[in-house]
Amino acid sequence: MELVVERLEAGYGEMQVLWGVDLKVEKGSFTVVLGPNGAGKTTLLRAIMGVVRPWRGRVVYRGVDVTSLPPHRKVAMGMTLVPEGRRLFPELTVEENLVLGAYSRGFKGVEEGLELVYRVFPRLKERRGQKAGTLSGGEQQMLAIGRALMSRPRLLMLDEPSQGLAPKLAAEIIELLARLRDEEGLTLLMVEQNVAAALRRADMVYVMEQGRIVVSGPPDKVASIEDIRRAYFGL
C-alpha cells in the first residue's frame, strides 16, 4: 500500500474539518476523492502532506508513519502536492520555479527533470524565461504539475488540477496525468470537481461529505449509487 490514512482528524484553530478519514491508496493507482465544496478535500491533502498538522489519526506512507513529519521531509521521501491555487512563485521565472521543484533532491537531476517536464509540457519550454505570474491559468497549472514532477515523486497528490481551466484543457491534463502514471510509475491521489473526466481514468473513488468518507469503491460502482449519481454526475 502506497498510502494509508487512518481516522485522520484535522482543522484550523477551533474549527474541526476532518472527522476521522480513512483512505487507502494502492501503489500505481489513480485514486480520486470527490465531494462538494467544504467537504474537507483540500484539508485532507494538506493534512496528509503536513501543511496543516493532523490533530489525531495516522498517515502511513510506504509502511512508515509520517503523521507528524514536516512537508519538506515528506517531499524528500517521494510525496508531493500540487496545492489548491497552484502556489507558484509569481516573481520567479518558469524555469526557476521548476528548478526549485528539485530543491529536496539538492538540485540533483535538474537537467533530466527539465527535459521530462519540457517534453510533457512543450509550452513551458517556450515560456521558460517568463515570470510565472504572467502565465495563463492553464500554463500555470502545467507549471504547478511540472514543478511537482521535478522532485521525482512516487506519490503525486493534486488538489483540483482542472480548477479554472476550460473543460477541454482540464480533460487533457487528466489524460496526461494518467499517462505519467503509466509511463513513470507514479501513484496519483487527486481531489477533483471535474467528475466525468476524473472518473474515466480513476481506479478508486472516495466520496467525502462534511469531513468524512461516505462512499468508496471503483468508479463504476460509486457512479451507480443513486444519491451520488444525482449529486455529482448530474445524470
Binding site: H72, L88, L100
Partner: peptide, 13 residues
Amino acid sequence: QDPEGAMVVGINV
C-alpha cells in the same frame, strides 16, 4: 513569494 508553495517543493521553511 509563497510559503506554502515553498513547503510543497520541499523547502524547510
